[in-house]
Amino acid sequence: MKRNSTEFGILPAFHGDCLLIKTFDSNNEEFIILIDGGTAQTFKYSLKAELKDINHINLLILTHIDSDHIAGLISLFKSSLIDNIIVNEIWMNHPEIVEINSDELISTRQGDTLKDLILLKKPDVKLLEISTKDESILRQGVELVILSPTPQIKDELYRQWKLSNFPKTDNDNVKISSQKEEYSTSLVDLSKISFSPDKSINSDIFNSSSIAFILKCLDISILLLADARPEVITESLRLNCFSETKPLEVDYVKISHHGSLNNTSQELLGLIKCNNFIISTNGGTADHKFPSRETIARIIFNSQRNDEDLNIYFNYKIEELKERIGDFIYDMDFNEGNWNAINRNWF
């Protein structure tokens, strides 16, 4: 199929991530990239429908092994739908990916592995582990500049995985902006609070091991951050010669970890020039609510802002997010910063 423009969808993935990118290669042949599968419900309610007319995925990426990214892919590979889809290449980092019975749990004791399912259904697929050691990967004119994880973080993931069984808990246990006083603080004031994550990289190894990259299509560019840590991305951008005076310029940024407080720093945003930011979340779970009001403040009042409109896109309606997490943004917030909050799934 011929194509001459890129479109991509941030599918309604509940509290997870699922991205479907339809771009084109140097011969104007369609090039399909699927990034994560969201929750099991994501496959049932949205991904399945999006894939029913697709018979070829050029690149499938599992960014990391958290349940809100892997469960939908397990559902896909357990379905008959995958039998009718050619998959050329799969990226994923793990010594063993395990079956999960719900969208909240990960345990090394459970079930069949995703790798086993892949090898069963797609025995000839090209399976790759990815780290910043790979630097830039080119596929038929489509370039992916790898920013995370480092080889050291990937090795630490494997070490922790092999030494212990991870607990059956949600691995998104991060500090969020849920206190009333933080919700009532102005965005300008919140943007000035120094970034101070409550976990180290090694104690947040699932998110730290996320595969994050700059996607350079022939017509647009997207910074896709999965659930990556800002410290890792910042270091990688600087190693790629980006700085506050020479920032990375992209058309879109998919913000890390559903807009979590711990995954977007002022320093990182100071290395990026972009007017379109995307947050994938339905508001999170009962215990872990996203996005953080502080993250929104940092995006709006970051040092690379100019006078142009800034758009923050959500893949669920703003009203639905507020029903789950409260008034994380107010009408008065739009009086400063020249920005918009927009519900949109396809770009």
Rank of each mutant, 00 (worst) to 15 (best):
L215W: 12
I10V: 10
R324C: 04
K2N: 05
R109K: 10
L11S: 04
L119Q: 09
I33D: 13
S292T: 10
S80L: 15
E244H: 10
L225F: 00
E129D: 12
D17P: 02
Q266H: 09
T245L: 13
F31Q: 12
G111T: 07
D170S: 06
C241W: 07
S256E: 12
R3A: 01
L59E: 05
E156K: 08
F328W: 05
T42M: 01
V142L: 04
L261K: 15
A228M: 14
E308Q: 13
I318N: 06
S256T: 15
F195H: 14
L47P: 03
K154N: 15
I65T: 10
W339T: 04
F166P: 09
L128N: 15
T169F: 09
L47F: 02
R324P: 02
N28P: 10
S260R: 10
H258M: 05
K121D: 02
A71F: 07
S46K: 01
T23Y: 03
D327W: 04
L76Y: 12
S200N: 15
L237K: 03
F8T: 01
K52V: 05
F290R: 10
M332A: 06
H94T: 13
T245F: 13
K48F: 01
C18Y: 08
S292Y: 05
S280A: 00
F77K: 06
P151E: 08
A212F: 09
H257G: 04
L239E: 11
E182V: 14
Q160N: 06
L119N: 07
H258Q: 08
A13P: 01
I255Y: 04
L271I: 14
V253Q: 03
F14V: 07
G111D: 10
K48T: 02
A226E: 13
L127V: 11
K115E: 02
A212M: 11
V250H: 08
S107P: 02
G72A: 06
T23N: 05
T245C: 09
P95H: 01
Q152T: 15
F328E: 02
